[in-house]
Design a binder for these strands. Structure first.
Length: 501
RNA sequence: GCCCCCAUAGUCUAGCGGCCCAGGACGUCACCCUUUCAAGGUGAAGAUCACCGGUUCGAAUCCGGUUGGGGGUACCA
């Protein structure tokens, strides 16, 4: 990066729904660039959150708030925005309409924009006609050279109009992209885009350029889908006489089969990953590696690690396919190896409460229930892939009664029902005098019992496991029995024995 | 159709002219550990570096073309 000491970047979502992972990755890179790279290199870095709610027809109630909430969950912070204000507010475009109107009027006065009175129907017809002729569809600049008399006449009759940008008709425009280099476009291919809609709201193009200038944005980091309009934006800056910020387009995130990542392939919204039990740090780690890498070898990055190492120069220009399996691996890795047990307990609790397995009182310090929850979490830590799996995994530790299970599970392969019955009876005889807190003793006792019954250890352990948990998989048997406790174990054993009539 | 972007194993990537007949990770498979399931350990398969031409003593790395994939082509962002 150049020696600029002043970096101001922004994330500008439109509140038309929940935040997509592509957007999540874009904010992340903005955040890492401002707070990581810029500050490391001796400058200051500022991240601005701006809500671009200029499409009144697609607005979703509460979406802006939800985006802020999910960003907070994700672990990101920003310096200026709707919630915290700042020197360049307001940070919601619908509250800055006068600025866009003033800007549009300025361009009209300069002869760099014009009012367009064309109806949507006419626009549609023009587009269809051009497509039919095999020409590139686009506005035919019909209103670009209207006489002043025509314009006045239309205005006096109160005709609705949009304001369009007068793109230069010849020459070329070069966009310098920080991760792709120069991209040159022939001006004749660029459209006279609508800047101001007939409802007085700006389009993305005007709103974005005006605000980025007004908010003194130094670096624009946005999705790859904006490349096509970037040359028009550059021309807009020139028309206003403003400096063009540095621009970087983030590589696209593609769906597994190709194309856009959509619901059809699985979750696409940040919020959904939260609900499905993904950890924000795992999602962040995964998303950071989608288009960026440090050395091709290091895989695990905490937010601090990312802040310490991220550089825009190492962002790849090529699109990346979203791999759910790898995300799941990261999540599992964080649960299994990075989180502490206490931390996991705190993360898993909301999911258990939601499932009705525990309630808030379980979390009171020094309660026996918290001890049980903690022990259950410790035992299942290595077997949990997402937080959402916790209720399913931990039920038999947390509940008094076991849900019904298939009696056939009690009978291991190559073992007769009669043998199992005898074995469980023997275990029931042993249990009252057993010391479950002594794991070594429990193991010695049960191995001895198996031997005396003429069974292999596994042939005895599996029926006990199923009787105790209702499942064929569990953490180590002796620790599992200890956590369940003698009382519940006795009852569960009785239930199992009764299935043999 | 037109404009633009991209191109290393199924996927994410390292590589920025010789160290690479290509390294790491996910996934897959095998083995070890083992009371089950995981986790962990070890190992294997998997890429003629999309293709074709150049440049060079030498190319995955530079250039051109082709093909393929993707994006844009709205009074959506």
């Amino acid at each position: 990066m150049q020696s600029s000491t002043h970096v101001r970047v922004r994330f500008a979502p439109s509140p038309t729904g929940s935040l997509h992972v592509g957007g999540g990755r874009t904010v992340l890179f903005n955040y890492l660039f401002a707070y990581g790279q810029a500050r490391r290199e001796g400058g200051d870095g500022t991240l601005i959150l701006r809500i671009e709610d200029t499409d009144q027809t697609r607005l979703v109630e509460g979406a802006a708030q939800q985006i802020e909430d999910v960003l907070t969950w994700f672990g990101l912070t920003w310096d200026e925005g709707p919630d915290k204000g700042g020197p360049h507010g307001p940070y919601v475009q619908s509250q800055r309409l006068d600025k866009y109107q003033t800007a549009a009027q300025y361009l009209i006065d300069q002869g760099k924009a014009y009012r367009c009175f064309c109806s949507r129907e006419r626009l549609q017809e023009v587009r269809e006609a051009q497509q039919a002729k095999g020409l590139p569809p686009g506005y035919d600049r019909h209103c670009r050279n209207l006489s002043q008399a025509d314009i006045d006449a239309r205005l006096s009759e109160g005709a609705p109009f949009t304001v369009r940008f007068s793109m230069p008709r010849s020459g070329e425009t070069t966009v310098t992209d920080m991760i792709r280099g120069d991209m040159t476009f022939q001006n004749e291919h660029l459209e006279d885009l609508v800047l101001l809609k007939s409802d007085g709201y700006p389009t993305y193009h005007l709103g974005n350029v005006v605000d980025d200038h007004d908010m003194e944005i130094t670096h624009i980091m946005r999705g790859d889908e904006w490349i096509a309009t970037a040359p028009i934006h550059v021309n807009l800056y020139k028309a206003f006489g403003w400096d063009v910020p540095k621009i970087a387009h983030m590589p696209l995130i593609l769906a597994p089969g190709g194309g856009k990542l959509s619901k059809r392939h699985g979750s696409t919204a940040m919020e959904e990953f939260r609900i499905q039990g993904y950890l924000p740090e795992a999602l962040m780690n995964y998303l950071a590696l989608l288009g960026w890498s440090l050395d091709g070898t290091t895989e695990i990055f905490s937010k601090q690690d990312l802040l310490a190492h991220f550089t825009l120069e190492r962002v790849s220009p090529s699109p990346a396919t979203f791999d759910y399996a790898k995300l799941l691996w990261f999540n599992q890795h964080y649960i299994n190896h990075i989180l502490t047990v206490d931390d996991l307990v705190a993360r898993v609790a909301p999911f258990l409460i939601e499932a009705g397995l525990i309630d808030k009182t379980w979390l009171e310090t020094e309660s026996d229930r918290l001890a049980l929850l903690t022990e259950a979490t410790r035992l299942l830590k290595d077997r949990m892939r997402t937080l959402a799996e916790a209720p399913e995994l931990m039920g038999y530790f947390l509940q008094d009664e076991l849900p019904d299970y298939e009696a056939a599970l009690l009978i291991p392969k190559k073992t007769e029902p009669a043998q199992v019955k005898t074995a469980l009876d023997a275990v029931a005889g042993w249990l009252p005098g057993a010391d479950l807190d002594n794991l070594e003793q429990t193991e010695a006792d049960l191995r001895g019992l198996a031997e005396s019954l003429g069974l292999k250890a596994g042939q005895l352990f599996m029926p006990i496991r199923v009787a105790a948990t209702g499942r064929t998989e569990s953490p180590g048997l002796f620790e599992t029995l200890r956590a369940i406790g003698k009382d519940r174990l006795t009852r569960r054993l009785d239930t199992a024995r009764q299935t043999f009539g």
